[in-house]
Design a protein around this nucleic acid. Sequence first.
RNA 1: GGAGAGAUGGCCGAGAGGUUGAAGGCGCUCGCCUCGAAAGCGAGUGGGCGUAAAUCCGCCUCGUGAGUUCGAAUCUCACUCUCUCCGCCA
Length: 426
Amino acid sequence: MLDIRFIRQNPDAVRDALKKRGVEAALDEFMKMDEERRNLLFEAEKLKNLRNQESEEIARKKKAGEPVEDLILKMREVSQSIKEMDEKINSLEESLQRILLTIPNIPDDTVPVGKSDADNVEVRRWGTPRTFDFDFKAHWDIGEALDILDFNRAGKITGSRFAVYKGAGARLERALINFMLNLHVEKHGYTEIFPPFIVNRDSMTGTGQLPKFEEDAFKLYNNTDYFLIPTAEVPVTNLHREEILEKDSLPIYYVAYSGCFRAEAGSAGRDTRGLIRQHQFNKVELVKFSEPESSMDELEKLTRDAEEVLQILGLPYRVVALCTGDLGFSSAKTYDIEVWMPSYNRYVEISSCSNFKDYQARRAKIQYRPEKGAKPQFVHTLNGSGLAVGRTTAAILENFQQPDGSVVIPEALREYMGGMDKITKR
RNA sequence: GGAGAGAUGGCCGAGAGGUUGAAGGCGCUCGCCUCGAAAGCGAGUGGGCGUAAAUCCGCCUCGUGAGUUCGAAUCUCACUCUCUCCGCCA
């Protein structure tokens, strides 16, 4: 959420930022309502001041035994006016809030301007995509041939866009989760969180999934207003919703494994095969809370932390800076890490690392005190996948497949696989 | 699911319609004292909004939302959460 004062004072900057994103917002109407609200508020406050003073007067007179009937009658009318004005103010506030919640974040100055993912800028590459001297297969074919992935039965159990992992496949997924968590906890200094996979509406609003993207989320219908989390970002960022953090506690680094659930509305027909786009998938998520001054540095470090997973696994990847048109709703700056996926013959997103600056913090009211006794300020929040586990499994199957149909397990995962160095058909 | 109790400032805890934004204590900050510390003494100490900012001032805020009233932390209703007992349960 943007600061309403910032919009008031810099409407052109906001308009410009939205244009770069390719988004329209009813700013003129917004400014008008804001002014009306403030005028009404001023009038209402004058009346409230009168009411407070006269109420004390009544108390004083009553105690002294003086008559108060006239005053009470007069105040009855004042109270009625206050009530009417408050109702108008409230309805204006609701409208303003509704608009405010649908205005995306302002892109950082360093974000390349562009319309779509075609305008994203490659920042760096690591590793070299392997050239195959045999007829390589897509991971869904590898998985089914090795009897470690079963999409058909998942369709029977639930429906499309679900997968069953079996045997070494299930173990590989679990190994990756543990490997990633251990790396981030032990080497990068993150604190592990195991969050609820179901959250309430306030949490979804705090991180920006709601109100605008409700159709993307799975909603629970048991007389509750609960949602399945689309990412651990939601529960973990909301850990500190409506809190004032100690300066000394910053930066805070959290890492969380969670299942993730996405309706994938609007992506019908895309990535219909394999593990790339599922309604349910596993992810290890990195979340940071930082002081404003250091959040850009923290974004660089967070991205490197995520990259290291791919480096240790030996998977080629590249990092791209998302352009203004491709930037997520709440993000001020995002790097996508894309892993080489032979079946796609291109790099495929496996992590998205973002600095939200104070946008989520303002929505979720996450503050800190810059100094003892100072006014609280909004922290900056960041997060990134470290990594999407299902896509990592897919990348391992494809990049490390052998001519005989087996798949070599990366060295670093073997201790998590009971020493297994290769998945073969059994 | 049934029965009961509760939710007040960073924490503990009073308050039961009228200078109560809130006694008292703890904690914290600053000052005095001290070579220094402790103790003691004095002062201060939630958040939001009000065109930028400090001060002043005003409005709002005692779980959340509505209501009664000239006036609500105090009364009414709904909701949320916490605790205790019973039931059920991985």
